[in-house]
Design a protein around this nucleic acid. Structure first.
Lengths: 152, 152
DNA sequence: TTGCTTGCAAATTTTTTGCAAAAAC
DNA sequence: GTTTTTGCAAAAAATTTGCAAGCAA
């Protein structure tokens, strides 16, 4: 379950981190792979997975489990929340807890030890809500891989 | 993506629902299968998955995505929160939002349409926290399938 | 009887792993 | 030079699907 700590820096690791830094699209592993692949055409998806895990272990990125589509990765490691659009699949950073922190003191009183919490809001993003009435303008849903390409 | 609505009631569907009702352990699909299999030895895992999806579509149960272990299923469809123990894997129902609802009005003002939200707390449950100092008493972690059984 | 649902097996999809070769230090 | 990390292919794990047969209405 526990991985050995990384001991060396490699081009692959550096590019995986670079592909995420400054990004706010919360990509899936295969999307990170696609980006890194442009810089390092010989990199394998397995290496991307291993490096993503290393970066998570080091606390440089976070894993997000927001819906049934699988794990996304987030370079923003500060405490924040997420909005997931059920129509277009977009994930937006929220900072709800900054304005109103969730009160977890009752759990501590009951003997729980709290390490983190996640707050995820589901619904329609501003863009999709505005386009709601116009079906023709419905944006393409962002799906993993080519699931959406498969026609029966 | 959208499934056709179920039109008939079957023994399989009834048993899948029965296996969940009154249960607070938030089982994985294979755990539901194990339970139903005792009553209907010929049922297949595929049927359990299909019926779980039907029940979710009908709003009779909920899918929970709480950690990297995959989907759990919950017969409690009222709005509530969850605590996931990082040590033993146990999931406990919380009712934090009843005492202090999360304020999502700012999202509505920004043009978001909110349908639901999930609040999940991670840490150590009361039992594990009490046993924290005693490694020998550490409870067996609840894992999916036999992942933990695999020795190198 | 009609056509929906099941069981089975195979396919998909995502993620992990063994191992020899390459790279880091 | 030694040890870690990579690339590849294969395995593993979870879920979905095609289809003939069974069952509900």
């Amino acid at each position: 379950m526990r991985r050995a700590a990384r001991k060396r820096t490699t081009r692959q690791l550096a590019q995986v981190l670079k592909a995420l830094q400054g990004d706010h699209t919360h990509p899936f592993a295969h999307e990170v792979y696609q980006r890194v692949h442009k810089k390092l055409p010989r990199i394998s998806l397995a290496t991307v997975y291993r490096n993503l895990h290393s970066l998570v272990d080091e606390g440089k990125i976070r894993t997000l489990l927001l819906d049934s589509q699988g794990a996304r990765f987030d370079p923003e490691t500060s405490q924040h929340d997420h909005f997931v659009c059920e129509r277009c699949g977009r994930v937006v950073d929220l900072f709800l807890r900054q304005a109103r922190p969730v009160d977890l003191s009752s759990l501590a009183k009951q003997g729980y030890v709290v390490t983190t919490h996640t707050l995820t809001v589901h619904g329609m993003c501003q863009v999709c809500a505005a386009r709601r009435t116009s079906r023709s303008q419905r944006p393409a849903r962002r799906l993993r891989k080519d699931r959406c390409a498969r026609q029966r």
